[in-house]
Nucleic acid binder design. Structure first.
Lengths: 335, 335
DNA sequence: TTGTACGCGTTATCAA
DNA sequence: TTGATAACGCGTACAA
């Protein structure tokens, strides 16, 4: 079933059929109706390979790093509704967490010929290495790209460092002095490194002693890793009253590990997460966390991308506000 | 940068270049090397649109219904590793929950020309309506398709009805007699309907009275809907000692709602979920649940699909075992 | 072993 | 308003 078949069945030419299919003008009402009816009747489906081979498909591409990242899932939804309001078709591509998102984008660039790309998550090393091959406007979402030398790569992110520092400040204000941190692997995750540094800023400012070796665990952003890391921190035997996890999923694993060791949250240990997943507000206790504005990040990314696509201009780098949610997993302690 | 350019640069013809690109025989070592070098140097990337327009790409397609379904995410990982061991390329396509997965598959069938399709989740109504247009072997995963009249549609699923019944039986064995259920919308979700019927089976068997109107909520599988539904059930004012949620995510929302109403789990109310998400074992209290064998379902689906692709044969329908996890959110009560 | 030439399904540019 | 036809980039008979 091709447009050729459609042409034969309806008695029109492929050109006319194509015009109808693409809602082009210069087609008589009668032809339009007849052809549309035939499309429905015969269950015709267009071949996007052939179409994209010809067309400069004017779509927007979203490359999502990680297939089960709740924060990204929330953002994709927002992006979808926003882009739907424009005339740009949207294409979302999910990939494994430890895939190279830039190489993947280069591949998709050839296939889909999008006008611009939105990266949900990304590793600066990958960008440094291969991004030069991409020339369409791009926006890196949730990571800052201001340090990267590409004027077609904008970014919208949370100020991870400041947000983490703010979280620690709040715990310090609650009277906490002895901390452990379940964070990301600073050698591979930009996010992990920044949030770590934010914590250090707070410690330094308040003269709090902290042993990077004994009180930090750099692991993957998962329940299990959060759990394991916390087990180790407990096993180290250094007392602590507050635990900061650089992601809500790790915080959940951490709370379970604390529980298994007879430590209650927030009675014995205050736990603060990072991200502000929807899930975290349904937990018992509700998770205190630094909430990223997923909606706002998504919104600005789309706006910036479309602006760059339509009006050009060089890269810009924005950070969107975060909000500290003091909920039930943290408490004030007496000195 | 096309194979034509590549041909010019190297002095060979497009045919030879194409052969090298596809690792075909009948190419001299020298030509192979020269061309491969040129590919690297010029950063050539093949145009998959053109390629797929020509080729009957011998890939396997996975259509995932729902972008943030943890259970499916687990299965995709397993599928990926399994298919990687074969020579079939794998293509995973994620779509919104309330999209028509069959129409989407038909579309992708034209684009990617896969040898077979794996459906992760699906609505029997959609299949009944449009599946006839698909002729390649398919496997519906997590829903039973034995009632559907297609001999190229196999299925691998959990026996939802029996599993739900088993869950209720276990709660009854723990002394519970007054139940409420947070389930799916039985009019749209096959899964929701089956799990509901399983509960009814148990009630009937044990002579337990149950008011479908007052004690059942049919909602979407989300935290928020689980929460809202539970609020309503509590507001109805009918006392209950056990709550069954047809999905772990709903159970989590339910627990929070109970908590907000001063009801402790499992002290005041026992809560049992369904799915066995990884998350559920990290909660406090650990969620009692009916765990589906995600791994096993994924494994059998792949096996069946490849078998059908390679050796043909008509559809088969399997159910994989579930396991009842009595953890910390349920308890025995005294009569 | 290599090259020529055609066709895949579509869109777009003409001319009618 | 319509139709014939040339691309798009690639794979593959078939010929050499």
């Amino acid at each position: 079933m091709t447009i050729k078949d459609l042409a034969e069945k309806t008695g029109y030419s492929v050109a006319t059929v194509s015009r109808v299919l693409n809602d082009h003008p210069h087609v008589s009402e009668r032809a339009r109706e007849e052809i549309k009816r035939a499309v429905d009747q015969l269950g015709f489906q267009i071949n996007t390979n052939a179409r994209q081979l010809k067309q400069h498909a004017n779509s927007i591409l979203v490359v999502v790093k990680g297939t089960s990242n709740e924060l990204f899932a929330e953002m994709v939804e927002t992006i979808q509704t926003l882009v739907d309001k424009t005339s740009y078709p949207l294409h979302v591509d999910y990939m494994d967490e430890d895939c190279n998102e830039v190489l993947r984008a280069i591949q998709l660039l050839r296939e889909k010929k999008p006008l611009g790309i939105l990266f949900l998550g990304g590793n600066s090393r990958n960008f440094r290495k291969d991004f030069e091959k991409i020339s369409v406007p791009c926006v890196l979402v949730s990571n800052d790209a201001s340090g990267l030398p590409f004027d077609n790569l904008s970014s919208v992110s949370t100020d991870d460092r400041q947000a983490a520092r703010c979280a620690m400040d709040s715990l310090i204000a609650l009277g906490h002095r002895k901390f452990v941190i379940v964070g990301g692997d600073r050698t591979v995750s930009d996010t992990g490194r920044l949030r770590y540094e934010g914590c250090m800023d707070a410690f330094r400012n308040h003269g709090i002693s902290y042993d990077e070796e004994l009180d930090y665990q750099g692991v993957r952003f998962s329940y299990q890793d959060g759990y394991n890391a916390t087990q180790k921190l407990i096993a180290n035997g250094r007392p602590f009253t507050a635990l900061f996890a650089a992601a809500d999923v790790m915080a959940i694993g951490a709370i379970r590990a604390l529980h298994n060791n007879g430590l209650r949250v927030p009675r014995d240990v205050s736990v603060m997460g990072f991200d502000g997943l929807i899930l975290s507000s349904f937990l018992v206790p509700q998770l205190s966390t630094v909430a990223q504005s997923a909606q706002e990040m998504a919104k600005r990314s789309v706006e910036i991308l479309i602006q760059r696509i339509e009006q050009g201009g060089t890269a810009c780098h924005e950070s969107v506000p975060y909000s500290l949610c003091q909920r039930e997993s943290t408490r004030r302690i007496d000195e």
